[in-house]
């Protein structure tokens, strides 16, 4: 790089630029968190939904599935699985409950997690709740 552009100038761009964009990011975060209540369906986070999130986490569902497109790409998207299963919590619970212990020969299969009735109800409630967050119409269609 030419001599007119000195190391001090480079350092100042680094320091000034980083400080400016850290502050800008914090301001945007403040704005985002202030706007979230109109979008994130928080009024419907019941104790069951919270328990459902814990069931979701403690069985590492994200290790195969995506939720809002984030996670692993081995199994279907679950952000709209409630709608895909005909807006039916019973259908969701029935699917999870009926997974064969030894899998399906040659095919991918969800493990049998042996969830209690309370946990099944909670995970279904959590998936229903998460399908009602304003995600800018994502996923693009019912197949996720």
């Amino acid at each position: 790089m030419p001599e007119i552009f000195t190391k001090t100038m480079a350092r100042n761009i680094y320091l000034g630029g980083s400080v400016f964009f850290v502050l800008a990011f914090l301001a945007l975060t403040f704005d985002t968190t202030a706007r979230l209540p109109e979008r994130d369906n928080r009024e419907n986070i019941t104790e069951q939904v919270a328990l459902g999130k814990q069931v979701w986490e403690e069985n590492n569902c994200i290790g195969c599935h995506t939720l809002y497109g984030e996670g692993a790409y081995f199994a279907p998207e679950l952000g709209n699985v409630y709608q895909r299963f005909g807006n039916s919590k019973e259908a969701l619970k029935g699917f999870i409950k009926s997974r064969p212990v030894d899998g399906i020969p040659g095919r991918r299969s969800m493990p049998q997690f042996n969830l209690s009735e309370e946990e099944l109800e909670a995970i279904a409630e959590f998936l229903k709740w998460s399908s009602e967050v304003n995600t800018e119409n994502w996923p693009p269609n019912i197949n996720g």
Binding site: I13, S18, L36, E70
Partner: peptide, 23 residues
């Protein structure tokens, strides 16, 4: 200095590319 300046100037707000579809 120039490389890390460019990294942080673009990358910090660049976090926003993960904030499209999560609510």
């Amino acid at each position: 200095y120039v490389i890390i300046a460019a990294a942080l100037i673009t990358g910090i707000i660049g976090t926003g590319h993960h904030y499209y579809w999560i609510g």
